[in-house]
C-alpha cells in the first residue's frame, strides 16, 4: 500500500494563471465548456464534469492608489475535489462506483457509475458534475493514472509558483504549518488552513491555505461541514412515527363497529370470520 498523498494548495502565492486548469484539461482530455464571458477574470465559473480545477478570483481591495497585495487583497484560489477522508459523495453512492484508492484519494469508477447523480446532491463543495456525453459523473481523479506511474499530478506539475504542492500527506501538512506560521508572523492573522486537520470531514487530502474565512471562498465552515447520513436516523424516525400514527388512524377509521358494540374488539377475529 503506497503512502497517502495530498495536495497543499497555498492561495497566498497563487497568481491566477490557470495553468492548473489547462494542464488538467490537457492531461485528462477534457474538451471544456463552451467559451462564455462571465464579467471577470474567471470565465470557468465552477467545478463540474469539465472543470476539475477552478481558479477563483475574489477582489477585495478599495480603489486607493496604494495597496498591499500579499495574496489578501485580490484572493485567488485553485479549487479542486478535496478527497475527503469522510466523503459525502462516497457515502451516498448506491453502486459503489466511488472508491478510496491505494493512494487514499477518492475516485469515481466510470465503468460502475450509472449516472444517478446522488453524489452530486451530497458533495458539499459542488465538485462533481454530470456529463451528458458519458452519462456518468466526473471530478478530479487526483490523476490516478499518473500516480500509478509515479508521476506528479498534472496541475501540480504545471503550477509555476508552488501554489499547488503535491506529496505525501504528512509532509504537505508539515509544510502548510510552516507557511501558516510565517504568515501569522507577518501579521496575516486571518490566514488559516482548511482541511489540514480532521475538523473538516475527518481531514482533506487536498487541503488549502486560505487568506480569509472559508465562506469567502464558497467553502462550508466547520459547523456546516456535515455528512448526509446525519439525517438517516431522524428521517427514518419520521417514517416510523407516521406509519404508527397512520396505523392508529386507520384502526380508528376502519375498526369494526359491531365488534365494539359486543365489547372488546378483535380485528384479527373479525377478519378471520370474514373469509
Amino acid at each position: 500500500m503506497p503512502e497517502a498523498v495530498g495536495f497543499f494548495t497555498d492561495s497566498s502565492v497563487c497568481i491566477g494563471c490557470k495553468a492548473c486548469e489547462v494542464a488538467c484539461k490537457e492531461w485528462n482530455q477534457l474538451p471544456g465548456d463552451a467559451p462564455k464571458f462571465m464579467d471577470s477574470y474567471d470565465n470557468t465559473g465552477s467545478l463540474n464534469d469539465q472543470n476539475w480545477r477552478h481558479v477563483q478570483f475574489i477582489e477585495r481591495m478599495d480603489d486607493a492608489p496604494v495597496q498591499t497585495g500579499n495574496g489578501h487583497a485580490w484572493l485567488m484560489l485553485s479549487d479542486v475535489c478535496k478527497h475527503c477522508k469522510h466523503a459525502s459523495c462516497m457515502e451516498v453512492c448506491p453502486t459503489g462506483a466511488i472508491v478510496r484508492t491505494e493512494f487514499d484519494t477518492v475516485f469515481i469508477q466510470q465503468d460502475v457509475c450509472n449516472g444517478c447523480r446522488y453524489c452530486i446532491s451530497a458533495c458539499p463543495f459542488g465538485v462533481i458534475g454530470f456529463s451528458a456525453q458519458t452519462g456518468t459523473v466526473h471530478k478530479c481523479t487526483f490523476c490516478y493514472d499518473r500516480l500509478q506511474n509515479g508521476m506528479t499530478p498534472a496541475c501540480a506539475q504545471a503550477c509555476p509558483t508552488q501554489s499547488i504542492q503535491f506529496g505525501p500527506l504528512a509532509e504537505m501538512q508539515k509544510r502548510a504549518d510552516a507557511r501558516l506560521a510565517a504568515l501569522h508572523d507577518q501579521g496575516y492573522s486571518q490566514a488559516q488552513l482548511y482541511g489540514r486537520d480532521d475538523a473538516i470531514y475527518g481531514g482533506l487530502n487536498a487541503f488549502f491555505l486560505l487568506m480569509d474565512k472559508p465562506e469567502t471562498y464558497g467553502l462550508p465552515n466547520q459547523q456546516n461541514a456535515v455528512l448526509p447520513r446525519r439525517n438517516n436516523k431522524s428521517g427514518y424516525f419520521g417514517m416510523v412515527a407516521t406509519a404508527l400514527l397512520g396505523a392508529v388512524a386507520a384502526v380508528v377509521a376502519f375498526r369494526d363497529r359491531r365488534m365494539n358494540e359486543l365489547g372488546r374488539g378483535n380485528n384479527g377475529a373479525a377478519a378471520r370470520r370474514n373469509p
Binding site: V66, Q67, T68, W74
Partner: peptide, 25 residues
C-alpha cells in the same frame, strides 16, 4: 530580512500586484 520585498508600480493592480508587498498606482 524575513523575505524579499516586492514593489510593483503599475497603472493597474494586476496578478503581480496581488503578491506584491507594495503596489503603487
Amino acid at each position: 530580512g524575513g523575505g524579499a520585498k516586492i514593489v510593483h508600480v503599475d497603472p493597474r493592480f494586476t496578478r503581480t500586484s496581488a503578491l506584491a508587498d507594495t503596489y503603487l498606482r
